[in-house]
Design a protein around this nucleic acid. Structure first.
Lengths: 137, 137
DNA sequence: GTAACTGCAAAATATTTGCATCCTT
DNA sequence: AAGGATGCAAATATTTTGCAGTTAC
């Protein structure tokens, strides 16, 4: 019983080759992945529709989260913190490199609080920083 | 010569009914608009394709900017600051209301700086706060 | 054995492109 | 008049849904 199986088991999901494969991809990447990335790398094993459904399931279970983006792309990344059943404590900064286009989760950098105008009640914050990453600099 | 015409003229764009209409919609809304919102409100006057092309043109000219979102939707909002030709200084916080789903640009709230890990060079930052807005509270 | 998962087909949506026509300058 | 802007048709891309067959437990 390896780590990936444990993750699935912990979330009451059946252990299947496809899900293991997708988890592998996320753990192999230190950044965020788009649907297309996953399909490209797991496409031999998995149907496109299954990729959609698996990502959705993983988001619901809190295994991955959707990463905010400044363009309109949809990215997913592992929840490293204790996120459970759709309740994400995904309050770290995401960094997008202008050079290599990678999106990295800066798990150790928390989103700072801001003072909002009167009447606005904040519940959650997300932050995206673009620039040059440690590889491209 | 009204304001909208001036905006178009300043950006060397032809003054057309469709563009005026779309500018009107943005100025009438204090929040961000999705392609669907615009099409719904300008659909009698404008073809869907024209809406796509106009939004793209406006982004290139720096009249509007794409608003970052935590889900996968694509939103646009006016650049209130001096953005020119695709170079946006869009450094204010965006607020998304969980209740009414409106996205508001908090022009007066600037995105705070964060300390990044060694090797990361920030160029621009975006921030999205979700919660309850001043109307829904 | 049963419920969960997957693949395939197809529907529904969203976005882009080409081209002929019309409008702004 | 000329170049830009628009509408329409159609191509392409993306995401969702239904259902039947398969697999995990």
């Amino acid at each position: 019983m390896n780590t990936f199986s444990e993750i699935l088991k912990r979330n009451s999901l059946s252990i299947t080759d496809g899900r293991i494969k997708i988890l592998e991809l996320f753990y192999a990447s230190d950044g965020a992945l788009a649907h297309a990335d996953i399909e490209k790398n797991a496409g031999l094993v998995l149907d496109r529709v299954t990729v959609y459904r698996t990502l959705q399931t993983f988001v619901e279970k809190g295994i991955i989260h959707q990463v905010p983006t400044t363009d309109n792309s949809v990215l997913y990344a592992l929840c490293r913190q204790n996120c459970a059943n759709g309740h994400h404590h995904d309050n770290h900064v995401h960094f997008v490199c202008n050079q290599c286009q990678e999106t990295v989760c800066l798990d150790d950098v928390t989103v700072p609080a801001v003072k909002l105008p009167a009447g606005f009640k904040p519940i959650q914050s997300a932050m995206i920083v673009t620039g040059l990453c440690n590889n491209c600099k």
